[in-house]
């Protein structure tokens, strides 16, 4: 068997190259098992349709007016919900033999996780695209133009990528993928609903209003709304970027540490 005697590369792939290889792995998985995108497709469509037609009339007097308010919110909401699956996927991956091989390879150790999170950006973009496409079909008009929409999507995806580190931490702490998903939803439902996604906080009682206005999701949604409406979003956008930085600073090292210590 001559194949056994091939010339070996000088050194293993570096951190960037290894991470990108694992990112490619995530994208190949989407290609081969597209049904795993069910959640990515289902959540955005469901939220946008359900809330517009169910509450639109009651909240804003007409579904059309409500859609103008809601769509940037469901854009953020849908993408933020999809981030839970970063933790679910990692938790599932850890039990496979493939991960044993990855962990025994001479590459930068966190590469499989970093790569998977890079690959997840593809899922976020897909979820964002679906919400926007559906919104435009339903009559949403972005006064901020193409650039405003692109900046809003960019900001939402940046925040989502930072938040996904919190789920990978959870993915390493909990035992089963189902546990990660359940806890993820239990956390995200109140956090996303007590915000300005669906209604303006000034209709809420004072204490709840304070919570909703301090909620990072509210900052994200306000920034996305301003960008898509074509109004200045500088202050809110900076808050979002700051929150994203804090999330990464806390949860990326925590994930890495837990992953390194995992047996």
């Amino acid at each position: 068997m001559t194949v056994l005697d091939a010339e070996a590369p000088a050194r293993p792939a570096g951190p960037v190259s290894a991470s990108l290889t694992y990112a490619r792995r995530s994208l190949l998985k989407i290609k081969h098992v597209p049904e795993q995108l069910g959640d990515v497709i289902g959540i955005p469509i469901l939220f946008t349709l359900l809330f517009t037609y169910l509450f639109g009339g009651a909240v804003s007097g007409s579904t059309h007016d409500y859609l103008q308010y809601l769509l940037p919110g469901t854009l953020a909401l849908a993408v933020v919900f999809v981030t839970i699956y970063s933790g679910v996927t990692l938790n599932r991956d850890l039990t496979t033999g493939a991960f044993d091989r990855f962990r025994s390879m001479p590459n930068w150790r966190p590469a499989p996780i970093v790569g998977a999170l890079i690959g997840d950006v593809g899922r976020y973009l897909l979820a964002a695209g679906l919400v926007l496409g559906l919104g435009f079909l339903m009559g949403y008009r972005a006064h901020g133009g193409v650039l405003g929409v692109l900046f809003a999507v960019g900001l939402v995806v940046l925040f989502a990528s930072a938040l996904s580190w919190a789920w990978t931490t959870l993915g390493l702490l909990l035992r089963t993928p189902t546990a990660v998903m359940n806890l993820g939803f239990v956390i995200l439902f109140p956090v996303t609903f007590v915000s300005n996604v669906f209604v303006a906080p000034d209709t809420m009682p004072g204490w709840l209003r304070n919570v909703a206005e301090a909620n990072p999701i509210s900052h994200l949604v306000t920034a996305a709304r301003d960008l898509m409406d074509g109004t200045p979003a500088g202050h809110q956008a900076i808050l979002v970027i700051g929150t994203a930085a804090v999330l990464i600073a806390v949860f990326a090292p925590l994930t890495t540490l837990l992953y390194q210590r995992r047996e």
Partner: peptide, 30 residues
Amino acid sequence: RRISLTGQFASVDEDLTARENLVMIGRLHG
């Protein structure tokens, strides 16, 4: 750097093709 592991439960990625599995590991090796 000196070892390779073939685990008890196949250590290949089940959602990738045979070729994609080998190409991926090859890329990781540099």
